[in-house]
Amino acid sequence: MRTKAQTAMQLTAMLTSALLALTIVSGTPSDAAAGETDAKALVKAMSDYMANQKSVSFAYDTSLEVVTKEHQKLLLASSGTMNMARPDKIRATRFGGFANVEITFDGKTLTLFSKDSNLYAQFEVPGSIDNLIEELRTKHHLPVPGADLLQSNVYDELMRDVVEVKDLGSGVIGGTECDHLAFRAKEVDWQIWIAQGEHPHPCRYVITSTQVDQGPQYSVQISDWKSGTEPNAQDFSFKAPTDAKKVDDPKQLIDIDELPANFVVGDTK
């Protein structure tokens, strides 16, 4: 049997949850407009800060949700590193349960190296990091982890098709106090946590696929953020390991995507 104290505590918790939900979804029009303006200003400040960094390096952890036909959610996790020198150099690694991959771009040549199979593919992609990301997405269907956060104008990329904005206050990611913002676009919901202070870099980025059954999420959490160090050109050149074999088609590389080959993509809503 519940005591009066237990009943009171449960009612208090329910009221607190209801008030929190009400606070998030309601408010006066002027408050909502001010919150939207402030949230967009925080993203713009992050975008400007990122664009002004000649070199950036960080570690990251990703989580990719997969939903089965029985509506069971499975989480695929991986970790990696990213080194970038604007305007045209990248070295990225990703290590997970299904893949161990390195991506190298020196401004002219892109190299995809599958460490487990000791196979690599190379092709010419002259131009900037922006151009590289676009080619990987559209031509090769190989997105770079957190690519939206690497482009020269992060603000325009993130705010495209946004229809709703929420400022959720502060949050702490990896010991860093952040501004927590939520956005709704036409096909996805996304959240971002931006470090407060003089270095407003992204600490966590979460995308929810609202057009896919059960709304699976993809998240990137960033740590060990560094910027401003002078990059070494050799850091972005690829040296093939002993016995590594070059292939002509990236499709010959085994399990370089975050979603393993044995997972079948189902229908959207």
Rank of each mutant, 00 (worst) to 15 (best):
M1C: 13
A5I: 12
Q6K: 15
Q6R: 15
A13I: 08
T16W: 06
S17Y: 01
A18S: 10
A18C: 04
L19H: 08
A21H: 02
L22C: 08
V25G: 03
G27T: 05
P29R: 11
S30Y: 06
S30K: 15
D31E: 13
A32W: 00
A32Q: 12
G35L: 15
E36A: 15
K44P: 05
A45M: 11
D48Q: 13
N52I: 05
N52D: 11
Q53W: 00
V56T: 15
S57H: 02
T62E: 12
S63M: 09
S63Q: 08
V66Q: 10
E70D: 14
L74D: 09
A77M: 03
A77H: 10
A77I: 02
G80Y: 00
N83G: 02
M84V: 07
A85E: 14
A85I: 01
P87V: 11
D88R: 03
K89P: 05
I90T: 12
F95R: 11
F98T: 11
T111D: 06
L119D: 09
S128D: 13
D130H: 00
L132M: 08
I133W: 00
L136E: 07
L136W: 09
H141D: 06
G146N: 01
G146W: 00
A147R: 07
A147W: 04
Q151T: 13
N153H: 06
Y155V: 10
M159P: 06
R160L: 13
R160W: 04
R160G: 07
V163W: 05
E164V: 06
K166W: 11
G169K: 12
G169I: 10
G171C: 09
I173P: 09
G174W: 04
A182I: 03
F183S: 05
A185M: 08
A185Y: 04
E187P: 01
V188R: 14
D189W: 02
W190S: 04
I192C: 07
I192L: 05
H199T: 14
H199F: 03
P200H: 03
P202H: 01
P202W: 00
Y205W: 03
I207W: 01
T208S: 13
T210M: 10
T210V: 04
Q211E: 11
V212N: 09
Q214R: 07
P216W: 10
P216R: 04
Q217I: 01
Y218K: 14
V220R: 00
S227Y: 13
A244E: 07
K246V: 02
D249A: 06
D249Y: 04
P250M: 02
I254M: 00
D257I: 03
A261F: 00
F263N: 06
V264W: 07
V264I: 13
T268R: 10
